[in-house]
Design a protein around this nucleic acid. Sequence first.
DNA 1: CTACTTTTGTGGACGGATCGAACATATACT
DNA 2: AGTATATGTTCGATCCGTCCACAAAAGTAG
Lengths: 410, 410
Amino acid sequence: MSASRASRSLRAGIGSGNDGTRRHNLSTVLTTIHHHDPMSRSEVTRRTQLNRSTVGALVTELVELGLAYETPPEEQAQRGRPSPIVHPNSKVSALVVNPDVEALTLGLVGLGGVVHKRVRHALDRKPSPREAIDVTVDLVKGMGEELERDYRVIGVGLAIPGLVRNRDGLVRRAPYLDWTSEPFAEHVSRALGLPTFAGNDASVAMISESLYGAGRGVSNLVYLNGFLVGIGGGVMVAGVPLVGEDGYAAELGHTVVSEGSLRCHCGRLGCLETEVNFLRLREAMSGDPVDLYDLDSVLTTTTDRGLLLEAERQINVLAEAIANFISVFNPEVVLLGGFLGSLEAAFPDLVRRKVYESSFAPLAENVRIERATLRTPLPLLGSAELAFTPLLRDPAGVALPLAYGGPPAA
Amino acid sequence: MSASRASRSLRAGIGSGNDGTRRHNLSTVLTTIHHHDPMSRSEVTRRTQLNRSTVGALVTELVELGLAYETPPEEQAQRGRPSPIVHPNSKVSALVVNPDVEALTLGLVGLGGVVHKRVRHALDRKPSPREAIDVTVDLVKGMGEELERDYRVIGVGLAIPGLVRNRDGLVRRAPYLDWTSEPFAEHVSRALGLPTFAGNDASVAMISESLYGAGRGVSNLVYLNGFLVGIGGGVMVAGVPLVGEDGYAAELGHTVVSEGSLRCHCGRLGCLETEVNFLRLREAMSGDPVDLYDLDSVLTTTTDRGLLLEAERQINVLAEAIANFISVFNPEVVLLGGFLGSLEAAFPDLVRRKVYESSFAPLAENVRIERATLRTPLPLLGSAELAFTPLLRDPAGVALPLAYGGPPAA
DNA sequence: CTACTTTTGTGGACGGATCGAACATATACT
DNA sequence: AGTATATGTTCGATCCGTCCACAAAAGTAG
């Protein structure tokens, strides 16, 4: 054993004892099987670098806690005694809620990243916090009986299109919903009777990509997602999501780029998200307006001069912004999602060339620019991760419900 | 004990055993006394949240390792048995080298942040890597006998004005020294026969401020230093210095600001460090050119219209850049050093007002903007920290020299 | 000056955690 | 069928921090 549990922090932390060791190892095993679902016990042993005996004991404890189970070994073309497969118990789940301008999406995600359910509730106008909660409670009630019978819901993860204070889930400002200082997480928590955690939608999507998408195994990652309105950002720094002091960090869409002239809803001139913008792209097209998900085919086949010029303008601005993020973060990968991913897919060489031209050369030489891979489950998995975190950190310390008991009696 | 050793990483790490616990606790105690030198044993007990007995054993081990010693209690107006003071052994030291355009500075820094020696060797022109090493070796030889007799040098920390690959200390690009892809750390290591670590000068200065200066206790910190030429940046993210994939992160001086027109040495237009620039400030003055350290008094007393206009222009640009960094990092504090600190000191209200005006309001509302406090020992302490890190992480695992044996025989 | 209170150092017993070795088991290969 | 290999299982050894009882050293009150 040469494991180093020492954090990378320069500052002194606090001491630790045997129970801390146990917690750490239990957490390590549960997290490992959660992020790589079908995995043999021997593989767990190799990954954790723990002793066979120890892993045996840890898995046994996780099974007793109802967090994992073992299945008979798969057929394998390998000598030696087969090792049972350790699975996380996907019935242990998190509710996921993503209120947005056009719709409220609700999901149920189990350990292992299994999306049990996903409901998209279309909205005719942007919801108030009250309405968002009502819709959420209705949707949960709709799946209520099954929820109580079959799943053990440990918490709620919210993905919010705006600034979210991570300490308590206050929505400090969500411009497109027009919410200001709404204690949304607190109200959701009360309405559903579950511990609730909230994050910015793009940051949460970055976590999804990092765990299950194009960002697997990448420790230093810059993620940009082009939504219908606005651009969201998420950053992974040394394997840790960047949150900042209050949780407001990685607002990459609200960095001023050099060629800005339009006023952003945040009050400033020339924000990235005002200059690089799906709606402006759509306005540049002649013909019927396209959907965000149809952009790929349109961009690759179009001969619309106006659209092509606007796309190129936006790519130039985007490249400049990316170059700045590269100077700031020195990432291994820059991941583009949403309509930014469509731009990258349609003009891959142009995007890369412009980024390299706009960069301080030595910084950009090893950066990979790629398209994000996840589509609809995008915010789901990452926000579920928010709700799973306490359990993953201390599997034996979190009281696990036998079943979801429904909202508290009124 | 409710210590959580779990890292904040979402990804699964590796397991840990009893030896890991011991290492962690030994590290915790040594780091604690290193960063808060005079500290009683009972205070260590409180801080680490370990048991009295355990701290006793740990301190004993550190003393046996020659890393700490205890002194009789100070007089205290407090009841109860007095607790001995635990000190880090400041004879355990790191050599620090900071090659720059005008001078090469060498220092000897002991545990506890004690600056034993500091030599500034003026240079008539920017040094080549070869010359920098020769000067360094000469200076070390100059203090050689005493070094061997009185100190136990465990390593070398380099502060470099440029891009440094943290993996191996390669100086990828140092524009003002005109070094490109120089394996400087490796050569220094061979020349002095000591393990050598290198970092960017501003990032290292950020570490100094964070441990001993205006950034004490701040976990999320953006630091900007205005050098004679250029602007360096350093960022603390959740208590961990931002390094990026290769160590090139936090090049905040090389982010493009919106009003740029001059070409930067990095090849781009409108970099922060070309727009906000000490030399341009000096050119705007009538009269004799001032030194970087005289700027404070000049700025506060001047009535020079050209200088005031230029200062205001630079503050406007700086504020815009800071606003972007706030959007990206959501820091608790923004620290300004060098001539940027002088600007802040001379025009505190203007700086703050412009930053707040340029920011996405909710993000800036809690940010403190302050001047950095450390002057000459600035890069020294932080680069020493680089060299101390292995020891602080694993106090029992690093072979400690009885004395510095001098450069290897030629 | 003395007895009391408070705080801290010290040493041994204890429980908990991982490890390593020996043994058992299950598979592939020959 | 026998052998080699890989892994699960069991149990004792080892290490670590904690807890407890006691000693030590200071201030405080009378």
